[in-house]
Amino acid sequence: MSSNKKVDLEEEIIKKSFNLFLVNGYEKTTIRQIADAVGIGRGHLYYYFKKKEDILLFIYKKILNKIYELISNHDMNDTELLLNYAITQCLYTYTIVKYENLFRIYIEASKVPVIKKEYVNILIDLFKKKATETHYKVDEKDIYISVAVGCAGEEELLRRYYNKDIELDIEDIIKSVISTRLILLNIIEKKEVDEIVNNAINIANKLDIDGFLDSFDIFLHKI
């Protein structure tokens, strides 16, 4: 099989899988259903993705990379790592919450241990890559603690928000999650954290989030 055909088939697997996740939910979608939807055997599917979890993690990476791409394409006076990191969290959370089916996938997937673990690893790798572009000397241990604790808090707050079991709005949740992550990095003071969080939310809102999410909706249907 040519490299172009391999890429095309991989994209088709992702597209069909995501559609099944949206319609049936992540938990109820099986590898057999995905293979049938694509029109290939399970053995052929395993050549590309060993597990259903791998497909969802691939989609998470696409989402985060799309957000990073959006941020990098906008001129900002302060392009420090921490501010971009905070803006990314804003847009990521707004994206999940806007799409009900995507929000459901997030809630279902957050119950799967391997996905929780790998999701943390994805964010750690992204942050470490960005950290090399700045003057900050961030300890790898603090990066892990920051992301792991931040993800746990994010999951709990968003789950309660999804179930309408918490009296917080999305901006409250975003502020809490970002502040926790930045404080646990142990590189700036609380006052600076507050300034970054507020600045990130203001910048995210000026980026025309609704317009971004509309384009992201097209993106979701194309992956």
Results as ranks from 00 to 15, higher is better:
Tyr48Trp: 09
Arg42Thr: 12
Gln33Leu: 05
Leu57Thr: 04
Tyr47Thr: 03
Arg32Lys: 15
Asp78Pro: 05
Tyr48Met: 05
Leu70Gln: 09
Tyr48Gln: 05
Thr79Gln: 14
Leu81Val: 14
Thr30Cys: 08
Phe49Val: 00
Lys52Tyr: 05
Glu53Tyr: 09
Asn77Ala: 12
Ile63Val: 11
Leu81Asp: 02
Arg32Cys: 00
Asn73Asp: 11
Ile71Lys: 08
Ala37His: 04
Ser72Thr: 05
Leu57Val: 06
Gly39Arg: 11
Arg32Gln: 13
His74Trp: 07
Tyr60Val: 02
Gly41His: 12
Lys51Ile: 01
Ile31Lys: 13
Tyr60Ser: 04
Ile55Arg: 06
Arg42Val: 10
Thr79Asp: 14
Asn65Ile: 05
Thr79Gly: 09
Gly41Ala: 10
Tyr47Lys: 14
Lys61Cys: 04
Ile40His: 07
Tyr68Asn: 11
Tyr47Glu: 10
Gly43Gln: 10
Leu56Asn: 02
Val38Thr: 00
Lys66Met: 09
Val38Phe: 06
Asp75Ile: 11
Ala35Tyr: 10
Ile59Leu: 07
Arg32Leu: 13
Gly39Asn: 09
Ile63Ala: 06
Ile67Trp: 09
Asn65Pro: 03
Asp75Lys: 15
Leu45Ala: 01
Gln33Trp: 01
Ile55Leu: 11
Met76Tyr: 12
Val38Arg: 03
Ala35Gly: 08
Lys66His: 15
Leu70Lys: 15
Lys62His: 12
Ser72Asp: 13
Gly41Ile: 09
Lys66Asp: 12
Leu57Arg: 06
Gly43Val: 06
Leu64Lys: 11
Lys61His: 08
Phe58Val: 00
Asp54Gln: 06
Met76Trp: 04
Asn73Gln: 13
His74Lys: 14
Ile40Thr: 07
Gly41Glu: 11
Leu56Asp: 00
Leu82Tyr: 01
Lys51His: 14
Leu45Met: 06
Glu69His: 13
Asp75Trp: 13
Asp54Cys: 06
Leu81Ala: 00
Glu53Lys: 10
His74Asp: 01
Asp36Ala: 11
Lys51Ala: 09
Lys62Ser: 08
Gly43Asp: 11
Glu80Asp: 15
Asn73Met: 08
